[in-house]
């Protein structure tokens, strides 16, 4: 049994449970252990995930969400509603499940672009106008997500 998921689930229990007497803490440890025991293969991705880059990635993503949020607010409040909706087929060179989940989630979180369909290597993205596609088409996001999952030697 892996020890890291047990500790993570137990910390979540400690944060959410409001009482810290002995019986509740022991119940938390037992529940976390049972959950890990009945899900032995529940790994989200087989690739290595770099937590260090994730710490840098999240503020960058939030800044980007904020910027395009102001852009979309300007579009909504404009009386003429100058939108040009477009479905674009976006080719990416990310293949594994973990990378695609992070990429699709980041695209959908950003106002102005939404993932509609996902396949390995190709995403169908609905963009509301030309400026909101800019980061996506220039490949910045692709690059950043790729850095979250560093290649192991045998994957190359």
């Amino acid at each position: 049994m892996k020890i890291f998921p047990v500790i993570a689930l137990f910390v979540l229990w400690l944060v959410l449970s409001a009482s810290y007497d002995l019986i509740h803490v022991v119940m938390g440890i037992v529940t976390a252990a049972i959950v890990v025991w009945i899900n032995p293969t529940a790994a989200p991705s087989t690739r290595k995930f770099s937590w260090l880059s994730a710490i840098g990635y999240m503020p960058w993503l939030f800044g980007r969400v904020l910027k395009s949020g102001f852009h979309v607010s300007k579009l909504i409040l404009d009386p003429a509603l100058p939108i040009k909706p477009e479905l674009l087929h976006y080719k990416t060179n990310l293949r594994s499940n973990g990378e695609l989940v992070v990429l699709g989630n980041s695209i959908t979180l950003t106002p102005g672009t939404i993932t509609v369909e996902v396949a390995p290597g190709e995403l169908i993205v609905h963009a509301i106008d030309a400026p909101s596609q800019k980061d996506l088409v220039s490949g910045v996001l692709d690059d950043k997500v790729g850095r979250l999952f560093p290649m192991k030697e045998r994957d190359k």
Binding site: V65, I76, L81, I83, P85, L109, T110, P111, I128
Partner: peptide, 18 residues
């Protein structure tokens, strides 16, 4: 204000994520 379901989802993601 938005005309179809795809654009309305953009407004929804604005409310949710910001």
């Amino acid at each position: 204000r938005f005309p179809d379901v795809f654009s309305r989802a953009h407004a929804l993601s604005l409310t949710d994520s910001l």
